[in-house]
Design a protein around this nucleic acid. Structure first.
Length: 589
RNA sequence: GAGCCUGUAGCGCAGUCUGGAUAGCGCGACUGCCUCCUAUGGACCGUAUUGGUCUUGAAGCAAGCAGUAGGUCGAGGGUUCGAAUCCCUUCAGGCUCGCCA
């Protein structure tokens, strides 16, 4: 489904996050204001001013103008004057001040610092946490969905990075995630590489990464097909034999499928991905017909020219054939079955499909059909649609070999990282390679996650491997800087500090740290890791500026202690945030 | 022909759902800075070996920081005290449209 922001029909897929959001300073502002304004108070209007010097929170008074029949400026001024008295003794809100039509509030700095920092220095969960636990939701997240006739490519990488990050984000708001992978292991495209292996493979064993070995035959097939149109019927015939259960064909199929899957698993390992469950198309492709037939009997579907068709006009969608006139099932048929199977297997509360935007209509139709069938979980299915990945040279076409291979990209990123490291540090080879692996992967993952999932993106290799600016390595480097300070201090850090020593620069940083919790919630409920990327970049920038102009270890005792806690908090948040993106942090850099 | 999505600086993006205070960020360009980063010198400590700590600080360069330049928020209209944001029209690009997956 085109579950984008502007999709007004969005009903499913929410991670139910609003209740996880938590801002106790804003709550305090609400309390103060609601006392003052009574029924005229609208908490949803409270906002954060564009410039921190204006205040920490703001209440725009435009809407009050009609009520009080005065100008917004006048109203905000009057309320500010009245609040002066009532705020005496308030431990959270230090003062209120009007600025034009806005009423701005300042949180008591030491209270703010203490609250945020004491959360941030907890290594396990550096975000603020609302007391009381949410009931755990079980969520199935399906991603990767490879075809067993060729290796993974760049598009899969975006899919996988998204799937893993969304899974981790979901877990971070307390859900129990089951990672599933649908393996597309049947169909003519699979037979094509099999056919070519049969013709030219001569019983060879893979002499390279096995999925690449398989993929080579697929490429060869397509080269041949260009010259010799007569080969396609051969592939069709092979599919017929496969479906008929021909022993020789099945043996070949099993062998090549194993190679492909072995290869995928290597890549998954490399990326740090592990699935809880693999579903195989070959095992389910015939199923679902029963569901459709029952639907036909109950009058949910209709028959047209011998085919079973779902009438989706009520949902304003094109109709969809569910069973062909020759009685065979199609992709949609098995998807209906798989949707049901997943809920049955895990008793899940919701089910997410990470699939490219070219299948938007397919999923709209699928969910509409589930709804027609009266399956209650139809409302709890969500298509996480992501945009195409283009190359500067245009669209990738696997059949024509214009592909960026996933494994190639990964190793290329590592090589470049290694060169960069060698340029900067003289360390042992093994250590350099270990770092290169992590840094190269982080660059890749961050680059793929940084763009809003719904949008198409261009994979510019030059830019993606850059280590400067808004990149994964930049965030990691910032983490390393923070770590380096703590390492140099090399003593147990005293957590009992004086929270009044913080100045303005520090408060800006601390407030950003305080935003981590709600950022995670936002990202998790909108399925957008890009929100976390943006947040981390902002935090890094503020921290680096702070690092640049504020000495920590060379400050006098009380300040040093207070600053060390900031460094520690930032470090924890960076590590935590990167982890949500599926990125490993270097222990020491 | 229809549906969905996208359009913000030379390039790549955030902000749009939930309208507000000067439209943010990165790359590239130009100008600077430089500590807890890099490297050199010095002192001390240590190991089978790789090292570690302190200090100085010419210099360099940054996976770092700052400043400068760069904008009809695709175009046009409307709603509103107020529009990048909401509504309508239109242009451009992408994806898709019952027996493919």
């Amino acid at each position: 489904m085109p579950r984008n922001d502007k999709d007004k029909n969005r009903k499913t897929g929410s991670n139910g996050c609003s209740c996880y959001k938590y801002d106790l300073f804003r709550d305090a502002v609400s309390v103060v204001l609601s006392k003052e304004l009574k029924d005229d108070f609208d908490g949803s209007l409270i906002e954060v001013p564009p410039d921190h010097t204006f205040g920490d929170y703001a209440y725009p008074c435009f809407s009050l103008a009609k009520v009080f029949k005065k100008s917004p400026e006048q109203i905000s001024e009057e309320i500010a004057v009245r609040l002066e008295k009532s705020l005496v003794g308030n431990k959270v809100i230090a003062r209120a001040q009007n600025r034009g039509p806005y009423l701005n509030f300042f949180v008591e700095p030491s209270y703010l610092s203490k609250t945020i920092i004491s959360a941030a220095i907890k290594k396990s969960r550096p975000e603020l946490q609302k007391p009381g636990k949410k009931p755990e939701q079980k969520q199935i997240i399906e991603f990767s969905s490879p075809n067993t006739n060729k290796p993974l490519h760049l598009g899969h990488l975006r899919n996988i990075c998204l799937g893993e990050s969304v899974s981790r984000l979901s877990e971070s708001i307390g859900n129990n995630v089951i990672r599933t992978c649908l393996v597309n292991d049947r169909g003519t495209h699979i037979c094509k590489s099999m056919l070519m292996y049969k013709k030219e493979g001569k019983g060879m064993e893979p002499d390279k990464k096995p999925d690449h070995f398989v993929g080579d035959f697929y490429v060869k097939y397509n080269e041949l097909e260009k010259k010799d149109k007569g080969i396609e019927p051969e592939a069709q015939e092979m599919l017929r034999l496969w479906e008929a259960g021909d022993r020789e064909t099945l043996t070949l199929w099993k062998k090549m499928k194993r190679w492909a899957v072995e290869g995928f698993n290597e890549t998954y390992d490399e990326l740090g991905i592990r699935f809880d469950k693999f579903y195989y198309e070959s095992e389910i492709y015939k199923k679902g017909k029963d569901i459709v037939k029952t639907g036909l009997r109950k009058g949910v579907f209709k028959e047209e020219k011998g085919a079973i068709v779902a009438d989706l006009s009520k949902e304003k969608l094109p109709n969809k054939v569910l069973v062909r006139s020759d009685g065979t099932s199609i992709y949609m048929t098995q998807d209906i079955y798989l949707a049901k199977l997943k809920f049955k297997d895990y008793g899940a509360d919701s089910s997410v499909y990470v699939v490219g935007s070219e299948q938007n209509l397919h999923f709209q139709q699928l969910f509409a059909i589930l709804k027609l069938l009266g399956f209650s979980y139809a409302e709890r299915c969500y298509h996480l649609s992501y945009g195409m990945v283009y190359l500067p040279s245009g669209k990738m076409k696997s059949r024509e070999g214009v592909v960026v291979d996933a494994d190639d990209i990964i190793s290329q990123m590592k090589d470049i990282a290694l060169k960069e490291i060698r340029k900067r540090y003289r360390i042992r080879k093994a250590e350099a390679e270990r770092r290169a692996a992590k840094i190269g992967l982080s660059a890749l993952k961050f680059y793929l996650l940084m763009t809003d999932p719904g949008k198409d993106m261009t994979f510019n290799p030059e830019e993606s491997i850059s280590f400067e600016g808004e990149t994964g390595p930049y965030v990691q480097y910032t983490y390393a800087r923070a770590s380096s300070i703590l390492r140099k201090y090399n003593k147990k850090i005293d957590k009992n500090i004086d929270y009044t020593t913080y100045g303005d620069d520090e408060l800006v940083l601390i407030k950003k740290m305080g935003a981590y919790h709600n950022t995670l919630v936002d990202a998790a409920c909108s399925y957008k890791p890009s929100i976390v990327c943006r947040y981390l970049l902002d935090l890094c920038q503020i921290f680096n500026e702070y690092y640049h102009k504020t000495p920590v270890l060379k400050a006098e005792e009380a300040q040093m202690k207070a600053r060390l806690l900031i460094v520690m908090g930032v470090r924890n948040i960076l590590a935590s945030g990167l982890k949500k993106l599926g990125i490993d942090v270097l222990p020491v850099m």
